[in-house]
Nucleic acid binder design. Sequence first.
RNA 1: GCGGGGGGCUGGGCGGUCGCGGCAGUGAUGUCGAGGAAAGUCCGGACUCCCUGAAACAACGGUGCCGGGUAACACCCGGCGGGGGCAACCCCAGGGACAGCGCCACAGAGAACAGACUGCCGUGUAUAUUGCGGCACAGGUGAAACGGUGGGGUAAAAGCCCACCGCGGGACUGGCAACAGAACCGGCGACGGCAAGCCCCACCGGGAGCAAUGCCAAAUAGGGACCGCGUCGUGGUGUGUUUCACGCCCUGCAGGUCCGGGUUGGCAGCUAGAUCCGUGAAGCAAUUCACGGGCCAGAUGAAUGAUCGCACAGGGGGGCGUUUGCCCCCUGGACAAGAUCCGGCUUAUAGGCCCCCCGCGCGU
RNA 2: UGGGAUGUAGCUCAAUGGUAGAGCAACAGUUUUUGGUACUGUAGGCUAUAGGUUCGAGUCCUAUCAUCCCAG
Length: 128
Amino acid sequence: MLDDVIEKSEGQGLSDFLSFEVLKNRSDFLRAARGKRVHSTSFVLQGWNRHDESGPVRVGFTCSKKVGNAVARNRAKRRLREIARLGMPQYGKAGWVYVLIGRRSVTAITVFTSMQDELRAALAKLHP
RNA sequence: GCGGGGGGCUGGGCGGUCGCGGCAGUGAUGUCGAGGAAAGUCCGGACUCCCUGAAACAACGGUGCCGGGUAACACCCGGCGGGGGCAACCCCAGGGACAGCGCCACAGAGAACAGACUGCCGUGUAUAUUGCGGCACAGGUGAAACGGUGGGGUAAAAGCCCACCGCGGGACUGGCAACAGAACCGGCGACGGCAAGCCCCACCGGGAGCAAUGCCAAAUAGGGACCGCGUCGUGGUGUGUUUCACGCCCUGCAGGUCCGGGUUGGCAGCUAGAUCCGUGAAGCAAUUCACGGGCCAGAUGAAUGAUCGCACAGGGGGGCGUUUGCCCCCUGGACAAGAUCCGGCUUAUAGGCCCCCCGCGCGU
RNA sequence: UGGGAUGUAGCUCAAUGGUAGAGCAACAGUUUUUGGUACUGUAGGCUAUAGGUUCGAGUCCUAUCAUCCCAG
């Protein structure tokens, strides 16, 4: 199953990996927080439709102090970035802004393939 | 063999695939990429800016046995003193209580110019639950009671006298010093404790911090208020005060301070340094010196992740085997990640490895 | 990066270095037909942790932990 994902990713080529851009401004995060919200077991997904399909998919990552110390925060953020890299080009919609939020002592431990499934289910739930 | 003490090291390894940040390159690609504590931010510095400079004083803060090391330190090393332990060894802010103030609850007669509650002894009288005088031995309290033990002595006693111990001073000796030893002197109702209570003494300390600071670009405004009011002086101003020296301003579109308004971009600072590794020398050691070699993160919503395989410690279960051991399955890898940089301290840390020492038991 | 505050009963707070207390809450009893109110009593604390100074620390000193606040 994982090999499938990797194979597909390879087939799509390198440029598709960079097909989403990372949020860096606080205002973008606040705008996404006003949108819809889906709670999953290992993370929280927020989504907001810009109604402008020209740009790429935009994704942000948040791990506050509630997640734990610096090691736990960095690790959770890296794993969220990895599932977004593998899943967003396939399941994300252009013109949307997504924010993935880490959760304490869950995001860093959960099995990686099940996190990928959760992302796909959460995106399906988010899109109307 | 059992138990204990001290010190040091390591902090998972190798490889495949897909990715991340810096640098080089047109590109393919190559190369480098977290720690012993990077942590807490408890000390000390480098560096940059601000204050005109020097001295004295005051205030505030810190340090506090001695010697050495260091750029510096509250750190380190070696000693000394005190306390704990059979020992190896461990712990200690450890100057001053005749400069002054303050405190010492309860209990107890009395808690810090001493003095006498219950007592003991002598004596007078009205023979009593009394007066006068002497004593500080006994009682009990307390953390602490103004020397202890024994003997002499006395009406009863007391360093009143003697011996030993303690205490205070101490020539002199050893040591750079802290300190140690000590002839001799003092008869001791002298000299209690707390300075991590105030304080005294000695020494040290300007303030702010890389969001420091400098430059570029963009954008908004092109404004307002106050000081200064005069042609050179007892002017104003420049650290908390004083003195001395030295500046600056008083030049109306200038100067100084503040307010208002705008930006949240980029570059420098930004990683070659009290640097790391090795060898030799000096020193008990901390450490220093010489020579040779190496370059070892520079991000800024902030780079190390995902996954597979192999072997390696560790834990649990099962099977074989007298034991050492062998095989299979499952599990599973501590604490924790740079943010200007160094030197320390403190705290967290699974498992593993090495060295030295002490006590007890047994054997030779 | 720099600075500051707090930690005491379940909660909100007191306490000159000398027996840790008050209010609310909890529990039990009295009053009431019952509940509430009122009154009486009871229990509950390793004073955040670890050392030290002191005869004796909630208090003084040192280190640590946790929470909160402020400035750039």
